[in-house]
C-alpha cells in the first residue's frame, strides 16, 4: 500500500506534462523522471526523488514554454499538488519502511491531503482573482522584475521560516 502513492503521483506529473505537449522529447524526459522515482523507491536515498521532482518541473516548464499553451489555473494547481504529494508520500513511505503501521496513519494522511487540496484550490482561485485585478494597475515593463523579486522574496522568507523553526524550541 505504501508503494502506491509515489508512482501514482509520478505518473500524474508525467501525464499532466504529456497532455500539454504530447511529443517524444517530453516523454523521454518524463520517463527519466519516472526511472529516478523507481530508483528512489528501491534504494534508501532521498536525492532521486528530489531530482525526479525537479525533472518533472523542468519538463513541464519546457512543455508550457515550447507550446505556448494557454494558462490553466486548475492544471497548474493540480501539478503543484501532485508534486507536493510525490515528495510527502515518498517521505511517508520511507518512514513506514520495515515498520508496523497503525490503522489510522494512511487514513489521516489521505484526509489531510484532501483538505489541503481544497484549501489550495480555494486560495488559488482567490489569488488568481487578486492577481488579475492587480495586473491591470501594474505597468507591463516592471512585471518580470517584480516577479523575480517576488520569487526571491518568497524563497528567502520560506528559508528563514525553516531556519527559525529549526532553532526554535517549545520547552
Amino acid at each position: 500500500m505504501r508503494h502506491v502513492p509515489v508512482p501514482a503521483f509520478a505518473l500524474t506529473l508525467f501525464a499532466l506534462t504529456f497532455r500539454v505537449a504530447p511529443i517524444e522529447p517530453m516523454a523521454v524526459i518524463g520517463l527519466a523522471g519516472v526511472l529516478l522515482i523507481v530508483v528512489g523507491m528501491v534504494m534508501p536515498w532521498r536525492w532521486p526523488i528530489i531530482s525526479a521532482a525537479c525533472i518533472f518541473t523542468t519538463n513541464h516548464a519546457l512543455a508550457l514554454w515550447a507550446t505556448d499553451a494557454p494558462v490553466s489555473v486548475l492544471g497548474a494547481a493540480g501539478f503543484g499538488l501532485a508534486q507536493l504529494g510525490l515528495l510527502q508520500s515518498a517521505d511517508l513511505g520511507r518512514c513506514m519502511r520495515a515498520a508496523s503501521v497503525g490503522s489510522g496513519v494512511v487514513r489521516a494522511q489521505i484526509v489531510r491531503w484532501i483538505g489541503f487540496a481544497v484549501l489550495t484550490l480555494t486560495s488559488t482561485m482567490f489569488g488568481t482573482g487578486v492577481a488579475r485585478s492587480l495586473s491591470a494597475t501594474l505597468p507591463v515593463a516592471v512585471a518580470p522584475m517584480l516577479a523575480a523579486v517576488g520569487a526571491v522574496g518568497v524563497v528567502v522568507a520560506l528559508a528563514l521560516a525553516a531556519t527559525q523553526a529549526g532553532r526554535r524550541g517549545n520547552g
Binding site: 516548464a61 494547481a77 503543484g80 508534486q83 489550495t120 492577481a131
Partner: peptide
Amino acid sequence: RPDLFVAVLP
C-alpha cells in the same frame, strides 16, 4: 509562465 507560479503555491 504564470502556471508555474500557481504550481508553486501548494
